[in-house]
C-alpha cells in the first residue's frame, strides 16, 4: 500500500481545439478541450496534460482562456506545456490554473531558465519535457540524444546526462518521450525509460508508443516509470481509463481505483 502509479491522458491542442482527433466510445467529440478534460476527469484520470502546439503568439491568449476554463471545472492536476519560454509564460499559466508547466526546447536553448523557474515557482510545478531518440547502433551500448523540433533537430546532448542536469537545476518531474516510438503503438522504449528513471531522483512520466494496456504495465514494471502518458488509445475509445487502471492493478501495479 502506498503511492499509486498515475495514468495521464494527453491532449494536443491547437488554437483552442484538440487536434489528432478525439473520439470516445459512441460520442463523436468536436474537439473542445474543456469537454474532453472533463470526460477524462470523470473517467478517473489521475492528471491531465495539455500540450499547446499553437504556433502563433497571438493565439496564446486562447490557450490561457482554455486553461482557465479547464481549471475551474476539473479538480485533478493539470500540466500545460508547449511554447513555455519565459518566467512570464509560467506565471500566466499558473495564474490561469495550471498546476505544473512543461518546459521543452527553452530548456535546451537556455538551461538556466529551468533553474530560474524552479527557484521562482518551486520545483513541484516545473516539469522538463525530454524528447529522446536512440543514436547508438544495435550492437553498441545504448545511447540516446535529445532532439528538438518534433524530433527533427539533433542537439548532441546525451539524454541521460541531460535528465540528470535538469533535475540538478530544479526540475521536479521529467516527461520522457521516445521519438522512435511516438505514434508507433509498439510500446514505450523500455531501456530508455529505465535508464532515465534510474538516473534521476524525481518522478518520470513515460510517453510515446502506447498501443495496448500491457505497454502501460511494462512502462512501470520494467521501465521504472512513475506515471504513464497516452493519447490515442484513450482518445479513440480503444480502452477506457478505468479499464487501463484495472488491468494495471491486476498486473500488480498499485493504482487509484474509483
Amino acid at each position: 500500500m502506498g503511492l499509486a502509479k498515475r495514468i495521464i491522458p494527453c491532449l494536443d491542442v491547437d488554437a483552442g481545439r484538440v487536434v489528432k482527433g478525439v473520439q470516445f466510445v459512441d460520442i463523436r467529440d468536436a474537439g473542445d478541450p474543456v469537454e474532453i478534460a472533463k470526460r477524462y476527469n470523470d473517467a478517473g484520470a489521475d492528471e491531465i496534460t495539455f500540450l499547446d502546439i499553437t504556433a502563433s503568439h497571438q493565439e496564446r491568449d486562447t490557450t490561457l482562456h482554455t486553461v482557465e476554463q479547464i481549471a475551474s471545472q476539473v479538480f485533478i492536476p493539470l500540466t500545460v506545456g508547449g511554447g513555455v519560454r519565459a518566467l512570464e509564460d509560467i506565471r500566466n499559466l499558473l495564474n490561469a490554473g495550471a498546476d505544473k508547466v512543461a518546459i521543452n526546447s527553452a530548456a535546451v536553448h537556455n538551461p538556466e531558465f529551468v533553474r530560474e523557474a524552479a527557484e521562482r515557482f518551486g520545483s513541484q510545478c516545473i516539469v522538463v519535457a525530454i524528447d529522446a531518440k536512440k543514436v547508438s547502433a544495435e550492437s553498441d551500448t545504448n545511447r540516446w540524444e535529445i532532439f528538438t523540433h518534433g524530433g527533427r533537430k539533433p542537439t548532441g546532448l546525451d539524454a541521460v546526462e541531460w535528465a540528470r542536469k535538469m533535475t540538478d537545476y530544479g526540475a521536479g518531474e521529467i516527461l520522457l518521450t521516445s521519438m522512435d516510438r511516438d505514434g508507433t503503438k509498439n510500446g514505450f522504449d523500455i531501456a530508455l525509460t529505465r535508464a532515465i528513471s534510474d538516473a534521476v531522483p524525481v518522478p518520470v512520466i513515460a510517453s510515446g508508443g502506447v498501443g495496448n494496456l500491457q505497454h502501460l504495465v511494462d512502462g512501470v514494471q520494467q521501465g521504472g516509470a512513475d506515471a504513464v502518458l497516452a493519447a490515442s488509445i484513450f482518445h479513440f475509445g480503444e480502452y477506457s481509463v478505468q479499464q487501463a487502471k484495472e488491468f494495471m492493478q491486476s498486473a500488480g501495479v498499485e493504482m487509484r481505483l474509483g
Binding site: 502506498g2 503511492l3 499509486a4 489521475d46 524525481v202 512513475d226 506515471a227
Partner: peptide, 17 residues
Amino acid sequence: FSDTGTRLKVPHMGWNQ
C-alpha cells in the same frame, strides 16, 4: 527506500492513501 529496496522519488508526487 521502499520495502522492496528501490529508491523512492522525491518530490512525493501523486495519489497516496
